[in-house]
Nucleic acid binder design. Structure first.
Length: 423
RNA sequence: GGAGAAAUGGCAGAGCGGUUGAUUGCACCGGUCUUGAAAACCGGCAUACCGAGAGGUAUCGGGGGUUCGAAUCCCUCUUUCUCCGCCA
């Protein structure tokens, strides 16, 4: 959520920045300004009346103490009219406040200057490419064929027990998952991220805090009985640790990591790119979350990008880094770098990580602040990134490291983690 | 799941209808004293919003109500503790 003070101060610049998302928000911005002004006017009026009646109430107490019953009764009468007036204004005020809040919820974050304009993924900017395309002397198999042949992942069994998008990993397939998780967590630990095991279900406040609610309600599994949501990413519980907090530390830099399963309904995305591990309802992910001083958030973003690059290199995968264009940028992000690995058999790029800086957009909703040098509270910057999401990494590892006989070589960095070098 | 008790500022802990945003202690910050430190003493010390400012408004777990007036009374929800039951 953008700060209303910021919209007030630089509406034009914000409207211009938002153009990069391919949608014109000027009308909505005007609407927030209008609502904000109306709201403040009504609020001011109401508070004045309230102040007067507060004063009267105090005097009533005084009158009673002094035994001036007549004066007290007279004052009582006067407060009655004030109260009625105040009540009316209060209703109007609350209405305006709610409208303003809703209007603000609908405006996405402003893309940073270097974010390219664009409306589709075609316009994402490839900023880096690493690793060589492997030449095959045989027809590389897609990972779902390899999984079947090697009995490492069982999709049909998942359908039987739960439904599509909930595979079973078996034997070496399961061990590979576990190995990757440990590898990713260790790498995060090395870079100073504290490890967490968070709850996998969160309440409504947390969903609102990180921006999943109220808009993207359909994306999460909702446990209606208890009004809780299955997390679509551990960004939600990790970032919400800092909801309603003021960081008092001077040179803070909060770095957290956690492995969790992630649950996504993926409503409306059936049919395309859903084969095998490409799009699941439940998948594993190691996530990085950071809370930073605004002056240090750019550097933090660079560090995270660097971290993810290191992981992909250690896994021996060909990858590229994209700077998402405005239209492809998430609602809450100011800038996002996507990492894609090349899938040999599918002949396409698979997104395996997304690293984003939210600036104050999440912090504003979270009420996550720090104490500035002049003792004032200011909003922090938040960041997060996957390091990494497992299924597509597994798909890429299987496809890119497959051998002609259907076996799969495990990259060296991973061998000590999984306990074997060939599947 | 049943029965009781409780929820107040960073912490501890008063207040139980009327100048209470809230006594007090600890912690913390500044000062005096001291060669320095400790002790002692003095002062400061919640957050948000509105306002150029003076100041105003709101907040004593959340929401609602009674009242001219609520931290204080009532309803409701949540959480914590104790006891019982059930269970990994």
């Amino acid at each position: 959520m953008l700060e209303i003070t910021r919209i007030r101060a630089s509406k034009e610049a914000i409207a211009e920045g938002l153009q990069k998302r391919g949608v014109d928000y000027s009308e909505q911005l005007d609407e927030t300004i209008r609502l904000d002004e109306a709201w403040r006017a009504v609020k001011g009026k109401r508070e004045k009346i309230k102040a007067e009646s507060n004063k009267l109430s105090k005097s009533i107490g005084q009158f009673f103490k002094e035994g001036k019953t007549d004066e007290a009764e007279a004052a009582k009468e006067r407060t009655k009219t004030l109260k009625a007036e105040e009540q009316e204004l209060k209703e109007h005020e609350q209405e305006l406040e709610e409208q303003l809040q809703n209007a603000l919820y609908e405006i996405p974050n402003v893309p940073q200057d270097i974010v390219p304009a664009g409306t589709s993924e075609e316009e994402n900017e490839v900023v880096e490419e690493h690793g060589a395309r492997r030449e095959y002397t045989f027809d590389p198999q897609p990972h779902w064929e390899l999984a079947k042949a090697g009995a490492t992942i069982d999709f049909e069994l998942g359908v039987k027990v739960t439904g599509a998008g909930f595979p079973f990993y078996k034997g070496k397939g399961a061990k590979l998952q576990r190995g990757l998780i440990n590898f990713f967590l260790d790498e995060a630990n090395k870079r100073g991220y504290e490890e967490f095991i968070p709850p996998l279900v969160v309440n409504e406040d947390s969903g609102i805090g990180t921006g999943q609610l109220p808009d993207k309600e359909g994306q999460m599994y909702h446990v209606t009985e208890d009004d809780l949501y299955l997390i679509p990413t551990s960004e939600v519980p990790l970032t919400n640790i800092y909801r309603d907090t003021i960081i008092e530390k001077k040179d803070f830099s909060e770095k957290m990591t956690s492995y969790t399963p992630c649950f996504r309904r993926e409503a409306g995305s059936y049919g395309k790119d859903v084969r095998g591990l490409n799009r699941l309802h439940q998948f594993d992910k190691v996530e990085l979350v950071r809370v930073e001083h605004p002056d240090r958030s750019e550097k933090a973003l660079e560090e995270m990008v660097d971290h993810v690059k290191g992981l992909l290199e250690k896994l021996g995968l060909e990858y590229r880094v994209l700077r998402l264009c405005g239209g492809d940028l998430g609602f809450t992000a100011a800038i996002t770098y996507d990492f894609e690995v090349f899938s040999a058999a599918q002949e396409k790029w698979l997104e395996v990580s997304s690293v984003s800086l939210f600036e104050t957009f999440q912090a504003n909703r979270l009420k996550l602040r720090f104490r500035d040098e002049d003792k004032k509270t200011r909003l922090c910057h938040t960041l997060n990134g996957s390091a990494l999401a497992l299924p597509r990494i597994v798909a890429a590892l299987m496809e890119n490291h497959q051998n002609e006989d259907g076996t799969i070589s495990i990259p060296e960095a991973l061998q000590t983690y999984v306990g074997f070098d060939l599947i």
